[in-house]
Amino acid sequence: MYRNYAKQEGFNTEVGLTVRLASMNNSSQSLDAEDTVVSDESLLIAVGNHQDVNAFNQLFERFSKKIFALGMKLTRNEQLANDLIQEAMLNVWQKAPLYDLDKGSAKGWIFTLSRNRCFDMLRKQKRQPNCVSADDIWPPESGGEPTTLVHEDRGGLEVELSLIEGYFDQLSDPQRAVVEQIYLHDRTHEEASAYLQIPLGTLKSRLRLAVAKLRSLIGVED
């Protein structure tokens, strides 16, 4: 199947939209005239169902310039736009078996693939963190039921603590205990020193150190 690839005419030559049905003979589409314009969808399904190289060539001719134009618009860089043709059309080839008419028009499907590959390509090129990819931002199932924010009851103080945990973790245990007494339980210095069973002077110096540490953590200069 791979071997029947025949060298195509130059990419820049304007090609007609007719293809010979010979390449489609295993397709479930029934087309009666040899000169019928084969839809993008039929071509894509032929690529997906039986790795139809001829159909893929047709898709390449129909879409590569448009992918290039999209790449130029988004990257303003000819080399990247050219790379996008490769990335996006490779993705079309790889994912064609997953396409069906429920996924909408072939051009819409190819558009979203191209946009997503361009987005990931740009992030990679700018060396941005890769925790989020285009497929997370434009999930395939988008348009379905919206998520609802799920709630569960939790205790109040624990909540506050867990939010600022990372910031508290950098204090020593005695410092943290003092900060919790003063800022979370809202106790006076006297109440806190009684509760923690430490002298008032010790409490004050621990608090001063803890606050200085916290200030430096959030970047406030003294």
Binding site: Y2, Y5, K7, Q8, G10, F11, N12, G48, Q51, V53, F56, N57, F60, S64, K65, K66, F68, A69, M72, E78, A81, N82, I85, Q86, M89, L90, W93, Q94, K95, A96, P97, L98, P140
Partner: peptide, 29 residues
């Protein structure tokens, strides 16, 4: 509507296609 941009003619699109169709296809998401 879309601008008819010419991509760089130096690129050999036939070899691009030839290499793409050598890749494995996905059978599931």
């Amino acid at each position: 509507i879309a601008p008819q941009l010419e991509s760089p003619s130096a690129t050999d699109y036939s070899s691009m296609v030839a290499s793409i169709v050598q890749s494995a296809q996905l059978s599931s998401e």
